[in-house]
Nucleic acid binder design. Sequence first.
DNA 1: GTCTATATGAAGATAGAC
DNA 2: GTCTATCTTCATATAGAC
Lengths: 192, 192
Amino acid sequence: MAARDKTDQTRQKIIQATDDLLYHKGFNLMSFSDIAEASDVPRGNIYYYFKTKDEVLTAVIQYRISQMKNMLDEWNKTIPGPLERLKRYTRIPLNEMHDVIQYGCPIGTLNSELGKVQRELQIESKQPLTIFKRWIKKQFNELIPNADAESLTTHFLVRTQGLAMIAYIYKDEKIIQNEVKALNQWLDQLAS
Amino acid sequence: MAARDKTDQTRQKIIQATDDLLYHKGFNLMSFSDIAEASDVPRGNIYYYFKTKDEVLTAVIQYRISQMKNMLDEWNKTIPGPLERLKRYTRIPLNEMHDVIQYGCPIGTLNSELGKVQRELQIESKQPLTIFKRWIKKQFNELIPNADAESLTTHFLVRTQGLAMIAYIYKDEKIIQNEVKALNQWLDQLAS
DNA sequence: GTCTATATGAAGATAGAC
DNA sequence: GTCTATCTTCATATAGAC
């Protein structure tokens, strides 16, 4: 149905615009007016698609999850071994260097913001990280069959979140470059 | 002068109450009403002491800085070597475990929140981290005279911020315990 | 499905009596 | 130095004409 298509298109336009907005301003400073302007959908009209701001957030999270799943599927198909897959993950902050410096890690900063007072929203917001976590753990299990994959995964997440955070605070690209290099060396040592 | 003392006392009461509030709610969700309630100073009266919310933040940052300096002075006096001093630093998240799980790192979460849109405030807010950074670097310089102390310091900050972040997101004390232990082992290896 | 007008509330901030 | 009343702005959200 054409009408249905139009609805879905508008919904999608709102979600994608909000995805960026959420990353650039954070949840609490992002208003419906911002969403209307960014998505080019009249302000009063956003409410036809989403009753509350929380609902928009939920939709954006689900959108991010589907994007991530596509990406990980692609990596699983095209990258042969667990070591190279984990290294592909560490390339994300390098590829997104400019954004990480300006806005931090999209997952980390959102969880940090929502974790203090808006706990229910934070629980939703950590889903993307948990999907990454499971995938990373699987790679470590393949890489070193008898290792404590859970601990290795936590350590890996700690270092990726930490480097994004410190680079974001100090606006310093070198931090990303050096810390990613060190992380890859750690992976190489584990694999050998 | 008694009047002057009273003013300073009230000012201090506001600052200390806001210190906690800022940590527990974040800057943007913390209102003047919250400050009034927490400090037990009438709402309209807060404005006599601080003209804007930004000014309250500045005062809290300065308060935190003075507290930190006292702590580091104390450590310099009572803890003999650089290795033990760095290990003392890694004990902070263990001692403050409960708060870190619930509210994250006070410095990291504040910088993360303000870094997106409120850049001038973020620049102020990173001062405490920079003070720690200088102190940590000094310890590394003493510990290993010919090493690249700047890189070691960055790595150290990445791991402490990262562990606080992941433990905060997943509400998991074990993450702090395990990652602090691993960090101390890394320090021991460096020192040997 | 679209858009305007508006209800409602809370925020930061100010004026001025006491 | 204290406290109340109020201004202004902007937020979420709703009602209802089209």
